[in-house]
Amino acid sequence: KMTIRVKGKELARRIAKEMKDRNLKVEIHEHGDEVILEIE
């Protein structure tokens, strides 16, 4: 399990899509400006 902190929703969406393309499970937690992606 891996956690990534990202500034900006646009970048977070791009990373999430990339991870889904690799068949990984992604959970997205938004905290205002910061987005936390949990990847399994």
Rank of each mutant, 00 (worst) to 15 (best):
L24G: 02
L24V: 07
L37I: 13
A12T: 01
I28G: 02
T3V: 14
V6R: 01
R5A: 05
A16K: 03
G32F: 07
E27N: 12
M2Q: 10
E30G: 06
D33L: 06
I36T: 08
R13C: 14
R14T: 06
T3I: 14
E10Y: 08
E40L: 12
L24M: 12
E30A: 09
E34S: 09
K20M: 15
T3D: 02
I4W: 05
G32C: 13
K1D: 03
K7Y: 12
K9N: 07
I39D: 00
E40I: 13
E30W: 13
E38H: 12
M19Q: 02
M2P: 02
V35Q: 04
R14H: 09
I39G: 00
K17H: 06
I36Q: 03
R22V: 03
M2W: 15
R14E: 08
E38G: 03
L37G: 00
I36G: 00
A16G: 03
R5Y: 08
K20C: 14
K20Y: 09
D21P: 02
E27K: 13
V35I: 15
K9M: 15
M2K: 08
I28F: 08
L37P: 00
D21T: 08
V26E: 00
A16V: 12
K17Y: 04
G8N: 15
I28M: 12
E34W: 15
A16P: 00
E27T: 15
K9H: 11
I15M: 08
G8L: 09
K25D: 04
I28P: 01
L11Q: 07
K20V: 10
E10M: 06
I39M: 04
L11V: 09
G32V: 05
L24D: 00
I36Y: 11
L11D: 06
L24T: 03
H29A: 05
E27M: 14
K7E: 06
K1Y: 08
G32E: 09
R5D: 02
L37A: 00
H31I: 14
D21A: 13
R5W: 09
E38C: 13
I15E: 00
T3Q: 08
L37E: 00
I15Y: 03
I4Q: 02
E18A: 15
D21G: 10
E30Q: 10
E30N: 06
R22Y: 05
V35F: 15
K1N: 06
K25E: 06
L37K: 00
H29W: 13
K7P: 04
L11T: 08
R22I: 05
A16C: 12
K25Q: 10
M19F: 14
G32W: 06
K20A: 12
A12H: 01
K25T: 10
E38R: 10
I15T: 02
G32Y: 06
E30R: 06
E18H: 13
K17T: 07
K7L: 12
L11I: 10
D21L: 12
R14I: 10
E30I: 14
D21K: 14
M19H: 03
G8H: 09
I28W: 15
I15F: 04
K17R: 10
K20I: 13
D21R: 14
G8P: 07
V6N: 02
E38S: 11
I28A: 04
M19G: 01
V26G: 02
T3E: 05
T3Y: 15
K9P: 07
E40Y: 15
V6L: 08
K20D: 03
R5N: 04
K17V: 05
E27R: 11
A16L: 12
M19R: 01
T3M: 11
R13A: 14
N23Q: 08
A12Q: 00
E10K: 09
V26A: 02
K1C: 12
E30D: 11
H29V: 11
E27V: 15
I15C: 05
L11H: 06
I39N: 01
A12I: 02
G8S: 15
G32K: 05
D33W: 07
E10D: 12
D21W: 06
M19N: 02
A16Y: 12
I4M: 07
E10P: 03
K1V: 08
K17E: 11
R14C: 15
N23R: 08
K20W: 09
V26H: 02
E40P: 03
N23L: 07
R14A: 11
L24S: 02
T3A: 04
E30V: 12
M2Y: 13
R13W: 13
L24I: 12
A12S: 02
I4A: 01
K25M: 10
I4V: 06
M2V: 14
E40G: 11
R13L: 15
K1L: 07
A12P: 00
T3K: 08
E18Q: 13
I15D: 00
K9Q: 10
K9S: 08
L24A: 04
A12K: 01
M2E: 04
E40W: 15
I15H: 01
L11W: 04
L37Q: 01
E18W: 15
N23V: 03
L37V: 06
A12Y: 01
I36F: 10
E30S: 07
R5T: 10
K9W: 15
N23G: 15
E38I: 15
N23E: 05
G32I: 04
M19Y: 12
M19A: 08
D33C: 10
K7W: 11
E27C: 15
I4P: 00
T3G: 02
D33Q: 06
H31K: 10
H31T: 10
A12D: 00
G8K: 06
H31S: 11
R22G: 03
M2F: 13
E34N: 07
I28C: 06
L11R: 09
T3R: 09
K20L: 14
R14S: 06
I4L: 10
L11P: 03
M2S: 06
L24W: 14
R13V: 11
G32M: 05
R22K: 10
E10A: 10
A16I: 13
E18Y: 15
V26T: 03
K7N: 09
I28K: 02
V35N: 03
E27G: 05
L37T: 00
T3W: 14
G8C: 15
A12V: 03
K20R: 15
A12W: 03
K17L: 08
K25F: 07
E34Q: 09
E18K: 12
H31R: 11
E34I: 14
R13Q: 14
E38V: 15
G32D: 10
M2I: 14
D21F: 07
K17P: 00
V26D: 00
M2A: 07
H29L: 11
K7F: 12
K25Y: 09
V6G: 01
I28T: 04
L37W: 01
E40S: 15
K1P: 08
K25A: 07
E38M: 14
R5E: 03
R14M: 11
V26Y: 05
E34Y: 15
D33E: 11
E40V: 12
I15L: 11
H29P: 01
K1E: 03
K7M: 09
L24Q: 04
L24P: 00
I28V: 10
V6H: 02
L37D: 01
G8Y: 10
L37R: 01
M19K: 02
V6E: 01
E34R: 05
E38W: 12
L24C: 12
I15G: 00
R5L: 10
I15R: 02
L37N: 00
V26N: 00
I36C: 05
E18M: 14
K1H: 10
R22T: 03
D33R: 04
H29R: 12
I36V: 10
E38K: 10
E34T: 12
D33P: 04
L11K: 07
K17A: 12
H31A: 11
K9E: 07
V26M: 03
N23F: 09
D21N: 12
R14G: 04
E34P: 02
I28R: 03
G8F: 08
E30P: 04
R14P: 01
N23T: 03
R22L: 10
E27L: 13
K7D: 05
E27I: 15
G8T: 13
E10G: 06
H29N: 04
R22Q: 09
T3F: 14
K9T: 10
E40H: 12
L37C: 01
A12M: 02
R5G: 03
E30Y: 15
K9R: 13
D33S: 07
D21V: 06
R14F: 06
K17S: 07
N23W: 06
M19V: 03
A16E: 09
K7R: 13
V35A: 04
I36H: 05
A12E: 00
K9A: 10
K25V: 09
H31M: 13
R14Y: 05
A16F: 09
N23D: 08
